[in-house]
Design a protein around this nucleic acid. Structure first.
Lengths: 164, 164, 164, 164
DNA sequence: TTTT
DNA sequence: TTTT
């Protein structure tokens, strides 16, 4: 059924790249998306939207985006649940990005290191490339909780979370 | 910043209509949106996506949609947080529907009662009508938790949650 | 770059299915999408939006949709140009549907013939299935004009129009 | 009915700002949106998508965007037709932008002149502001053709084209 | 806690 | 050239 999300915002932190036991890359990041209207106190707020991206685009995200980078996401809303360490069921809504667009010019602020530049275009595209062969990274661990609460520690992401 | 969501799915329950202390209508509902792919067990799963709608469209949703109704939503992803009754901060991601389209023909299943039909069109549109005058309903109470965990009991929705 | 369109509307005519010389299916159809607002005469207008869909979903569209069917489209805006028979360049903007959702219950009006019903679901989904083997149909001809102006006559659609 | 488009691309030319006889601002511009895939010759193509924006955002677009600016558009697909000067009916599909996001940092290339900077944010948002009072500009003329073929010459845009 |  |  129709399920489509498009976002443009800035990463609140560096993305986190992991690999499932079978070697599939996953990156998590949060986009801060400013609201187009002010609240009753006259302030502009933002939404902090958790995103996940799989496979090759996950590695591109990890390589090209850092805290503060401007990025566009085209994807789907997904929901899942897990039992936290108090045995309580937790419900999660997040955006599965099918493609990620890098909107930060390559030569800007903290992106200096990427200025190698193979293209005549300062922006890069993290599209979805279906056929790849990508099982170098490996990672496991006793993880049984929300990835978003688990920065950097070893985890065990099930391949069941794969969105295709 | 760009933040756009479009969904088509079925209501998992009847929508819940409430009013803020100042009389603004809010309806909550969950859409079950079937995924276009099967999981590793070969089953088709669904995402259960929480939606909120304000003002006149909220009342239309409450009047025209029931459990199982097919509906389309055009809106934005929003995030908020609140402290639950154990003093723990809970983060919520939900879709604020700017317009809701009723995709269930009026004369179908349990919608029989609506077949009065003022229009020559069996489908109705719950668009956003900016200028209205809508402060009949009133509701208050000691609510300090997630609306989605609080079906039917008296609540106190802050006008701060208004998305405009 | 981000380019996303989501539509729900009704087919203005039966879809037209054709095949490229190399046997790839293409279907064209126009969606009438009612506007959510009235014009200055107080009338509700519609937009008549040309859509193209390729491969397996093209055949599904041809099999399941007819004039008047309610359908959802998730796709991209594409532009192309061609020289018409007066040697004038014509610019075309159309929606390339990546997936088409059938929103008409199978047992409705003129869809009776489809009520064989393999699934317990009255709605079908015309998703994009990347790996297929589809080169029965064949078609050729002296076509050098807009497909939309060429209903049913033999044509020669170039594989160059393939959106991937 | 659902009709939603989101685009990110670059202006192919400076936007054209005009006013209807009753003083409503309209801006036209074309976005070049790069395709995420290559054609059979291995080249990356772009779609050139005509956009229209009304009222205050039209003036913002005219003030802040120039040829080459990166911009995001959230809007709807609209179709219309007119009779050209050979008495032939021409069909037009274009995007009516409800909001335009400026993705070009204010201090970049040819945007130097805008670096006055009232905000602590280098990006500006051309959202839709419903209540305004905007009838300084005035313009009329014997226009009876496609606005996109009529750069800079006096025109007469009918208020009938207003999308609300 | 989930819809057809 | 338009659908319910």
């Amino acid at each position: 059924m129709l399920n489509r999300v498009v976002l443009v915002g800035r990463l609140t932190k560096d993305p986190e790249l992991r690999y499932t036991p079978s070697g599939v890359a996953v990156a998590n990041f949060t986009l801060a998306v400013n609201r187009p209207f002010s609240n009753q106190q006259g302030d502009r707020e933002a939404d902090f939207i958790n995103c996940v991206v799989w496979r090759k685009p996950a590695e591109n995200v990890a390589n090209f985006l850092t805290k503060g980078s401007l990025a566009g996401v085209d994807g789907r809303v997904q929901t899942r649940s897990y039992d936290n360490n108090e045995g309580r069921r937790v419900y999660v809504t997040e955006i599965v990005a099918e493609s990620v667009q890098f909107l930060e010019p390559r030569n800007s602020q903290n992106n200096q290191q990427n200025s190698g530049s193979q293209s005549n275009n300062n922006y890069a595209q993290g599209g979805y490339a279906p056929n790849q062969n990508d099982n170098r990274g490996q990672q496991q661990g006793g993880y049984k909780d929300d990835p978003f609460a688990n920065d950097g520690k070893p985890i065990d992401i099930s391949d069941d979370d794969l969105p295709f």
